[in-house]
Simulated assay, not measured.
Amino acid sequence: MSADVRLEEVKSGLRRAFAWRGDRSDEYRYADITGWWRRPELLAGLGPALAELFAERPPTVVLGPESSGCLLGPLVALHFGVGFVEVTKNRGTSVDSDAWLRRTSPPDYQDRHLNFGFRRHLLGGGDRVLFVDDWIETGGQAHSAWLLTGDAGATWLGAATVVDALHGNQVRRRLNVRSLLHVREL
Rank of each mutant, 00 (worst) to 15 (best):
E41Y: 09
L42V: 03
G45H: 10
G45R: 03
P48C: 12
A49L: 11
L50V: 02
L50S: 05
L53R: 02
F54N: 00
E56M: 01
P58C: 09
P59S: 09
T60C: 02
T60L: 03
S67I: 00
S68L: 14
L72H: 02
L72W: 05
V76L: 01
L78Y: 06
F80L: 00
G81Q: 04
G81F: 01
G83S: 02
F84V: 03
T88Q: 08
N90P: 08
N90T: 08
S94K: 15
V95R: 15
D98P: 02
D98M: 11
A99E: 15
A99C: 06
A99Q: 09
W100L: 09
R102Q: 14
R102M: 10
S105W: 15
P106F: 15
P107M: 15
Y109Q: 15
Y109K: 14
Q110H: 08
D111N: 06
R112Y: 05
N115S: 14
N115F: 05
F116M: 14
H121K: 13
G124M: 07
G125W: 05
R128I: 05
R128Y: 07
V129S: 02
V129T: 00
V129L: 04
L130Y: 00
L130W: 00
V132Q: 00
D133N: 13
W135M: 15
E137I: 10
E137C: 15
G139N: 11
Q141R: 14
A142P: 01
H143T: 13
S144L: 04
A145H: 07
L148G: 01
G150A: 10
T155G: 02
L157N: 13
T161R: 02
T161N: 06
V162G: 02
D164E: 01
D164P: 03
L166S: 06
L166I: 01
G168W: 03
N169D: 15
Q170T: 12
R173T: 15
R178G: 05
L180Q: 05
L181A: 06
H182L: 13
R184M: 05
L186C: 11
